[in-house]
Design a protein around this nucleic acid. Sequence first.
RNA 1: GCCGGGGUGGCGGAACUGGUAGACGCGCCGGAUUCAAAAUCCGGUUCCUUCACGGGAGUGUCGGUUCGAUUCCGACCCUCGGUACCA
Length: 818
Amino acid sequence: MDDSGFYDFKITEANVQAEWLEHRTFDVAEESSKPKFYCLAMFPYPSGRLHMGHVRTYTLGDVIARFKRLQGYNVMHPMGWDAFGLPAENAAIKNKVPPARWTMQNIEYMKTQLQSLGFSYDWGREFATCDPEYYRWEQWFFTRMFRKGLVYKKSAWVNWDPVDQTVLANEQVIDGRGWRSNALVERRELAQWFLKITDYAEELLAKLNHLPGWPEKIKIMQRNWIGRSKGLQIKFARLEGSAIDVYTTRPDTLMGVTYLAVAPQHPIAKEAAETNSVIAEFLTACNQVKMAEADIAKSEKKGMDTGIIVQHPITKEPLPVWVANFVLMEYGSGAVMSVPAHDQRDWEFARQYNLPVKQVIEPDKAGECDLDRSAFVEKGRCINSGQFDSLNFEEVFDAIADLLQSNGLGERQVNYRLRDWGVSRQRYWGCPIPIIHCDACGAVAVPDSDLPVSLPTEVEFDGVTSPIKRMPEWSKTICPSCGGPAERDTDTFDTFMESSWYYARFACNNLRNGMLDDRAKYWKSVDHYVGGEEHAILHLLYARFFHKVMRDQGLVDTDEPFENLLALGMVLQDGAKMSKSAGNAGDPQHLLDQYGADAVRMAMMFAAPPEQSFEWSEHNVESANRWLRSKLWRAVILHSSLGPVSTLDSSSLSESQRDMRRVAHETLLKVTDDYGKRLNFNTVVSGVMSLVNELQKFNDTSDQGRAVVDEALKIVVLVMSPITPHICKELWTKLGLGVIEDAEWLSIDQEALRKRVVNVIIQVNGRLRGKLEVEPGASKDDLILRAGELENVEKFLKDEKITRIIHVPDKLLNFVIA
RNA sequence: GCCGGGGUGGCGGAACUGGUAGACGCGCCGGAUUCAAAAUCCGGUUCCUUCACGGGAGUGUCGGUUCGAUUCCGACCCUCGGUACCA
């Protein structure tokens, strides 16, 4: 680190990080004259070691936080741990370590890794979600929702491993078998707690339109996920027994229904199975596919006639009821009316089982409609529909809705694809559900004074049964309502619960007597949220839901948790995402040791724009390290070794000095836009590299030449500092500019941007035929004259008739010939 | 299956509003420096064609709009993410 030449990242990075820690440089408080800026990257699951996906997320978050800090904001940039989850249980089985201990060890190690990457966190705000001081407020909040009627219990299906006698996550079911036992999984029904997220469906949908800072693609995905639709709920009566309800968005095709299809889990299917062993076998087979929509949708479509007959609500004709493996019990009422002529899936099913196809819609215009080849799924006009013939979609929708409504067989309904959020997990390593079951009083919320319901941590964990399910000393308790003997709920929460409100808790992580206080109102919503695109739906939707419930509880006073969202593409390894389950591929540690944090950060930022997925290659770290020491470091050292610099006098510069200065300010303009608006940090790096290349060529050691270099280097070091903060802090000092964390972003000199000459391209029929270097603002006529003199242009215009000449000022001249 | 992305040299990517395709970096090739090496520096590098100037082709595939398309439109192929118990 001496002025004679070499840059030793090990010494500089260690010193700089020690200084940040010692001075608590990035600690932040609420009182400030500056505007607040809350920058947050999705906190990690402490899986053991960081992988390159983490490095990408946290570097991007850090770059934004540091940039905003330089722009004069009071920046909160916290970090914590999403500490509950399945991998801890898996590790506990494998290594015979209790999940809590394994988790805390991981946190300890990963924290050192984050610190060695030089992130500007306010570590005073750190917490882990497995800390009872955190999850007690989650339990408290759940009991508020419970009281408000936002919580209910119903039975729901889970993957059941019949050998290990345990519930399996979808991830743990591989090719239909339990991952450890290899047994064929079955579905089982269990009583579980649900949160009424559907009560907020309308607002969750509507408020997407008030999130201009979110990528359009994420909003589209959420809209589709919520899946609002307008349709009819229709009753198909049976001769005996209760009617079957179906929901349809296409009542215009009601006259074309030829059968009904119900889910294998539908009561009707079960009823049919009672007297028919073949159906019973079929249902068993259907229940051996795991509980994942993708698997259900991809499996071969199969069905069976249940023998049950229903009546068409208008024609009163008898219709058979089939059970079909592709009908989802969770959506709508678990039964659908099938219109093979106008629904592709029904059409395929009808062909497969020789069910009748009845066309009731014809194309409006002379369109394509060949029912021998496929269903006609577009909207059109009714035919073969009796009284509804010739009506269009809207007309028949209303006519049928009115008719069914008047005879009590149907009603208009707005439906959502979004389902209520099942939060019960039959696992150990999670937040205990604060409910007590009493034979006399039913489910009773644990009173505030008894919170938290703590999870015992020193446990024997065999991976099959959750320890708290076989610890009567833990689960046996007294009913808070009647004082009689009662039992605790031994399920734990879905870990998405913890990550649905952690961002708010960072504002007041040390609050002992409440979930949130006024500090959460000071920090308001997260200004910039950074995280992987894989969270586009579930995590982000659940957090949006929680935020609205917290708002209605008076805990926060904004409508949305995340104002701006940066949804990062995946860091791929061998074409797939890096993850805990993939064995923590891509540990950055050896790269940090060999090339340093700045090089790792820079390589990651340079590799690709944030929203794009890319295949990680370690090689770039070496070249980043090379650039930092042999280009950046050397340029500054070379410059400062020549001694003091005089003041820049922009009016007395030579042409080449003015050009050099223009490039510097153009770069500043570009990177300011890249940082602030475009969020493309790869082009920040390439822009700075270009500028440094230009500076190297410039090589002007005159008085004003050095002043130009001095200004340019100041720009280089400051704009690189969010990405490579350690070396830039050192170089900022060497340029005699003080403490870089206290610096302000530089302003652009508009005068310096003015161009002496511009390049105008000359085209013939849109093809490049020549170039002209002219003064800015050259007229079209002038350009035509000078372009005609170019030999290569003349060659193409000779003997041709020019029909048009297109002129884009200071850019292009295009001769159009016949 | 469904929803949402992506596809540009040997590789990562750039081209921001329809206007010079391939910036910047890696790799590779050639050279300088060196006793030699490392490090560093200089030059070249989409493909075909040409001694050269130049010309032709080219941004997943096919088609369309336009004076001009990586950019807009249509169809298709491949690939990645999500698909409600991985987080």
